[in-house]
Write a protein that binds this DNA or RNA. Structure first.
Lengths: 133, 133, 133, 133
DNA sequence: GTGGTCTAGACCACG
DNA sequence: GTGGTCTAGACCACA
């Protein structure tokens, strides 16, 4: 129920647009329970400062997520996780190839930066242990 | 030494720009050995058709990679992986946080699409087994 | 199939946000057949100049309408009416009260500006005759 | 002379700001005679509750209308329609285009919501009959 | 040349 | 103080 901060990191050098990173990060925080229904998000301006991003960029993401049923804004009060946050659209069927592509993309990116597949595996286990436990 | 095709997939819906996906894909193919020094890459037009992308986009990526020392163009013969492809920049410091961020991004994306961390782990092991073994 | 211009007018003094007026205008143009599936819309910059609005405002509306399935953008080519433009969401049931409220709002606005109900009626008939005939 | 309630409806989903809808509604009620000179308006809080709006919003509209000479506040007694409510500004020129634009906007909004021009015409006649007769 | 992303900063509506 | 709208203008991705 409290205000949540420090949940998100943006990579300003990554070619993925900032707003896309931000939207994905918020959705992920909800999907993994780091943000729960009813939780208040940081204000547009706070988050903009924290992420070193223009306030408009944050506002646009909040707005898009509200239209998507993920967030709710209460005028003058702030922005909150919707009571029943709309889940990400789940195409039934093609789950496995999608997951494989996703993992491959991660491995590719790691390889480009000089990380071996084993290093990725080790880090993945660590990350899961930390946030899962 | 042969022409290599079918190595790359682009996700036209992913917010990461096509040219960035393409460049990353080629670098990764080299870093992981799917492409070896001296291997010939598909022509600009072939690859453009295969990936359903404008030829200019492919050409610009080839050019960028040539400037970066990753590829070599031999006029009339085609484009090849450079004999001593520039190695991935291994900055000594800050490796671990970079890897962690990379993995976190992967987990986030997975979570958004409804995959659990364990599913990612399982798929990662599989992928490594296939291409690493 | 041609480019269509001169379809829209915005009232910069009206309290309704410009982007909302613009979105409504485009939807209406499609609903009434002034714009047909496949028609190309003016470029973002053209329309911005024509309507004396910032290009970002137009771009935002085009983007929103694309997300809503009303428009389609083809990279580098322009923005087009979608092949099967998604119709406005139609709540079954409360049609009549909605129409009454809408007409009342129109009469109210007219009254405020010193137009009588009869004047509105006369003008409505004229407008229908012109575009309907 | 009595307190008048139930005259106004606000559409919280309509993009036109609430305060603008409210101001227009009051002016229209006066222009059409639903509110006569000397009539008492609901208190700020009553109206705020009725319209599900923050009291500040109502208060600001009352204040604006008082400044405009449309309303009069008698301390301790309440807010009343001014004895000589400022008449709607009747600019001699440019009346017809203004009316046409107003009607067009109404038709557009109707079209977007799936109402035909004929349905609007029919409803307009009905509305006039009820309140005009 | 097309649309898309981002910034900086002003001003508004609402609570 | 909260989010929302708009502008001006830079720069990028893609055809």
């Amino acid at each position: 129920m409290g205000v949540v901060t420090g949940l998100l990191t943006l990579d300003h050098r990554h070619p993925t647009p900032l707003y896309a990173q931000l939207e994905r990060g918020i959705r992920a925080a909800i999907a993994t329970g780091r943000l729960a229904a009813g939780d208040r998000l940081p204000t547009v301006r706070e988050l903009a400062v924290e992420l070193k991003v223009n306030a408009n960029t944050v506002a646009r993401v909040y707005l898009d997520l509200e239209r998507g049923g993920v967030l709710q804004t209460r005028r003058g009060a702030g922005t909150f996780v919707a009571d029943e946050p709309a889940p990400a659209p789940k195409k039934s069927g093609a789950r496995e190839p999608e997951l494989r592509a996703l993992v491959q993309r991660c491995l590719d990116e790691a390889a480009v930066r000089g990380f071996s597949a084993d290093e990725v595996l080790r880090q993945l286990k660590q990350s899961i242990a930390k946030q899962g436990g």
